[in-house]
């Protein structure tokens, strides 16, 4: 009489365990497929204003970075890097430095390109949203590293200035899936604005290099 009861209890225990595991698995939200997500996106932005359609669609780099949550496997990392390097356009005369004063405005300005802005609202890089820059400016964000004394630390070398220009033009040509916007590749900032903000980092007279 003992045996069947024991077996019976075991069966119940086992059944409960299976049900429990099933339940735990069931609770795990399955990952949504790309098609599912994009169907929601189309449904949420049914009729974007003319010229804004491309903002809703992802480019290949955005898609891969989203899929891997900004930590792409080696092959994807290399593919993104090659693709983004190919977008780089340097000033024709080779001079990457504009006016640091104009660059300060680019770094401070956070508007432009929002649906609440006018078409002719000047676009800014909003660098201060994420970076410390001039040590005297206290209102800066911490999503990116401090850029205080950026040029000075790099001895104002022209190769370093060129590298910074490339970084600002397309952050992902240096670090795939960086959270920094690709300002030049998206044509969000003009060549002149990128030169100006590079000068803000590299001009010895810029407040960035003068604590």
């Amino acid at each position: 009489m003992m045996m069947p009861k024991f077996v019976f209890l075991c069966a119940i225990a086992f059944g409960t365990l299976v049900a429990h595991i099933g339940n735990v698995w069931g609770q795990q939200p399955a990952k949504a497929s790309l098609e599912q997500v994009e169907a929601y996106v189309r449904n949420t932005w049914k009729s974007p204003p003319a010229g804004w359609e491309s903002r809703i669609k992802q480019d290949e780099t955005q898609r891969v970075c989203s899929q891997f949550r900004n930590d792409p496997p080696r092959a994807e990392y290399a593919a993104i890097k090659a693709r983004e390097i190919a977008t780089l356009v340097f000033p024709a005369d080779g001079n990457v430095l504009g006016s640091w004063k104009a660059g300060e405005a680019v770094a401070q300005t956070g508007t432009g390109g929002q649906f609440s802005d006018k078409d002719d609202t000047v676009r800014g890089g909003n660098c201060y949203a994420c970076h410390q820059m001039a040590p005297k400016e206290l209102s800066y964000g911490t999503l990116g590293p401090s850029l205080a004394e950026y040029g000075k630390i790099r001895k104002f070398e022209s190769a370093e200035a060129k590298a910074a220009y490339a970084k600002i033009f397309n952050a992902q040509s240096v670090l795939p899936c960086s959270s920094m916007p690709r300002f030049g590749a998206h044509k969000f900032l003009t060549e002149q604005q990128i030169k100006d903000v590079t000068a803000y980092l590299f001009d010895p007279a810029s407040p960035v290099n003068n604590p």
């Binding site: 399955a30 916007p181 998206h186």
Partner: peptide, 23 residues
């Protein structure tokens, strides 16, 4: 479950001229 999974994917979905996602 579908709503939750899509919500999570949207949270990480990068797009537009700033490449931002919620994350």
């Amino acid at each position: 479950r579908e709503m939750l999974a899509v919500g999570e994917a949207l949270f990480y979905r990068r797009s537009a001229v700033m490449d931002f996602s919620c994350a």
